[in-house]
């Protein structure tokens, strides 16, 4: 693994109450609320904690107040993680209706690249010495259970097992706190 690129494009979750703490700058906004998901994911791939972060942020305020918190609503963050670099773009500036959304993931290794394009659940593999891209088969799904529900179920099952046997599972709390520290750094 050498490079991880994760991008989100769309707008933030709406908050109808203009006085909500979630819209205040001191809450850290969606940067603090959501970024840990993807930073945690990148750490899962790289297996190395980032040591620093560089962030370029900006703001588009041409939108409905329910989609606008205080402070930036776009972040381009670069996290060096040992041999891996994580480029994370969190773009909640697509404030108008009829705009595209979704996430893009690109994992680049020395032997090829795995990509999930915006709006797609498919994984595409580009491999060295291969002329064509390959569609990767996904892991066994949850049967009749909605994938989003299933993902929460897996996490809760893991946590329950941790309570029962006392063995800490990934992601470990100290690692998560380290990652969170860098997200706080990004607020400066």
């Amino acid at each position: 693994m050498r490079e991880i690129i994760i991008r989100y494009r769309g707008r933030r979750f709406p908050i109808g109450n203009p006085g909500s703490f979630y819209l205040k700058k001191e809450s850290g906004g969606v940067w603090l609320h959501n970024s840990l998901h993807w930073l945690d994911e990148a750490f899962f791939y790289s297996e190395t904690l980032p040591t620093e972060v560089n962030i370029c942020s900006t703001r588009n305020e041409n939108g409905a107040s329910a989609y606008l918190g205080e402070g930036p609503n776009y972040w381009s963050a670069i996290f060096p993680m040992g041999k891996v670099t994580f480029l994370f773009e969190y773009n909640t500036m697509l404030l108008k209706d009829d705009m595209p959304g979704g996430m893009q993931r690109i994992l680049i290794g020395t032997e090829g690249e795995i990509r999930q394009n915006y709006g797609s659940d498919d994984l595409i593999l580009y491999r060295k010495d291969a002329d064509k891209a390959e569609m990767l088969s996904l892991l066994e799904d949850g049967g009749d259970i909605d994938p989003a529900v299933k993902s929460f179920q897996l996490g809760i099952d893991d946590f329950a097992a941790e309570i029962l046997d006392g063995i800490e599972r990934e992601p470990k709390i100290n690692d998560t706190l380290n990652l969170f520290e860098l997200l706080l750094e990004g607020l400066k």
């Binding site: 490079e3 680049i108 032997e111 690249e113 580009y126 491999r127 060295k128 010495d129 002329d131 891209a133």
Partner: peptide
């Protein structure tokens, strides 16, 4: 980057 694989 200059990637070692091709992306058609």
């Amino acid at each position: 980057g200059r990637l070692p694989y091709r992306i058609p």
